[in-house]
């Protein structure tokens, strides 16, 4: 999911985020399937990583706001 941040266009970011999310869910299901983790373990893990993603998104938007405006101005 973090790979989405590297893309410039919002649509590409959304696609990459969707792929990352789907991969994360598949990974979680596979871990439950082989008995390595309980369902509650993977749900908590997804929740923690989602919180971190939201925090990272907030920080990135904050620190790159001036660069984005400069890029838009130049275009």
């Amino acid at each position: 999911m973090f790979l989405a941040f590297y893309f410039r266009k919002l649509s590409s970011q959304k696609v990459m985020f969707g792929i990352g999310m789907a991969y994360g869910i598949l990974m979680a299901i596979s871990q439950i399937r082989i008995g390595a983790y309980f369902t509650s373990d993977v749900i908590m893990s997804l929740f923690i990583m989602f919180l971190f993603m939201t925090f990272a998104d907030f920080m990135i938007n904050k620190v790159t706001a001036n660069i984005e405006s400069l890029m838009n101005h130049n275009q």
């Binding site: 941040f5 590297y6 993603m53 925090f55 660069i67 890029m71 130049n74």
Partner: peptide, 25 residues
């Protein structure tokens, strides 16, 4: 240069947040 500057900040924040997340888990 603008995109590189943006990518630098994105990579730094992604790295720090991901590293803290993985260490926490």
């Amino acid at each position: 240069n603008f995109e590189l500057c943006r990518l630098f900040k994105v990579s730094l924040i992604s790295f720090i947040v991901l590293f803290i997340g993985l260490e926490l888990v």
